[in-house]
Amino acid sequence: MTDKPIIALVAHDEKKDALVEFAINHQKTLIEYDIIATGTTGGRVAKACPKLNVRAMKSGPLGGDQQIGGMIADGKVNMLIFFIDPLTPMPHDVDVKALMRLAVLYDIPMALNRATAEELLEKDI
Rank of each mutant, 00 (worst) to 15 (best):
V94H: 10
T38G: 12
L87F: 15
A111T: 01
K15T: 11
I68N: 05
M57G: 08
M1K: 07
T41A: 01
K58P: 08
A56V: 06
L102E: 04
L87T: 15
M71L: 11
A117T: 02
V104Q: 12
I68V: 10
K4Q: 05
V94C: 14
E32K: 12
D17W: 08
D95Y: 04
G63R: 01
H26N: 14
I35Q: 05
D65V: 07
P86D: 05
P50C: 04
T29A: 15
R114I: 15
F82R: 04
L52A: 03
F82M: 08
I31T: 13
N25D: 05
D124W: 07
A18H: 10
E118C: 03
I125P: 15
H12V: 13
L105K: 14
I24P: 01
F82K: 02
I35R: 05
V104K: 13
H92G: 09
V20Q: 00
G69S: 10
A37W: 02
F22N: 01
D34A: 14
P5V: 11
V10F: 12
D65W: 09
P86Q: 06
I125E: 14
P91E: 05
K76N: 14
L80Y: 13
D85R: 02
L62T: 04
T88D: 02
T40Y: 01
A23C: 15
N113D: 15
I24N: 00
A111D: 01
